[in-house]
Design a protein around this nucleic acid. Sequence first.
DNA 1: CCTTGATGATCGACTACCTCAACTATCAAG
DNA 2: CTTGATAGTTGAGGTAGTCGATCATCAAGG
Lengths: 152, 152
Amino acid sequence: MSRLSTIIKAMTSLVTKLADRQIMGLLFGVMDRARENFQNVADEFDLTAPQARALLYLGVASPMRGLADHLSCDASNITGIADRLQARGLVTRGEAERDRRVKMLVLTPEGVRLRAQLEERIAETSPFMAGLSDSERATLQELLSKIAGRER
Amino acid sequence: MSRLSTIIKAMTSLVTKLADRQIMGLLFGVMDRARENFQNVADEFDLTAPQARALLYLGVASPMRGLADHLSCDASNITGIADRLQARGLVTRGEAERDRRVKMLVLTPEGVRLRAQLEERIAETSPFMAGLSDSERATLQELLSKIAGRER
DNA sequence: CCTTGATGATCGACTACCTCAACTATCAAG
DNA sequence: CTTGATAGTTGAGGTAGTCGATCATCAAGG
């Protein structure tokens, strides 16, 4: 490889890294706002962030194990979270069809209602939604699909 | 307003809401991955998520109050976080120039080094960076600026 | 049938995070 | 020099999270 192309390659890599840093900075700012927003909305409903995430996930009933995977935490942690949601009458521990070990977390009617309100408020207040034009939203959707759609 | 335009307006609003839901779904998927990724990187360095966020914020020294604002939590919470970072030798409590009440959190050389590694790893592993073309990154940056740049 | 190994959920102990109320020290202004 | 606001700490109390142990159940072989 020629010395020139080596130099060019190094410079390109440098520029790319600088641009990445800048994007990461923006990204973290946006993510911080999103986090804060989520926290605020959860507070409105007297929910903690993990409780709110659980509620959103339970749009379809799920074994406790599934929730643990979704929240990527230890299974034992779910016991307490489910306890507190159950104590507020938002969720019940049902039995599964084939396997008597698993307990299905199922939203109560009250839970369904609260979940809908939660979803509504989040969409309303999200910093991602406000102030983007229709075409910008379309572009955003496309980019997000690309980012989200990768195999893990 | 004519009945027709009323109907059209209602339909438009409906379609917009459906699209928003879809975007929110994608967005939450991406955010969950970003959260998980952040957690994993923090784990690599034996840091908790709040500790890692604090470290990143302390690129420039800050009074404890500033960190509390950034993490949007109660000031009393910072005492413990700072204690643990200090116990690991990543940070010191310095005195401020004009105001003897405030304590400046300042990264130690070790803290600076760890912070740099942290930043590096996050940029490397971010799901936002991998698999986007240069032009897509530019577009992303533009959209993020628009989202982030709004007055609060 | 009956062991054997894996899996779902719970419990107990322990740490970190977080809030609130109370307190100290300091500042700033009248 | 009082008065009020602000920075940080402390203690109480609750949630989140991990780890190790335990119990019940499942699933597969012998």
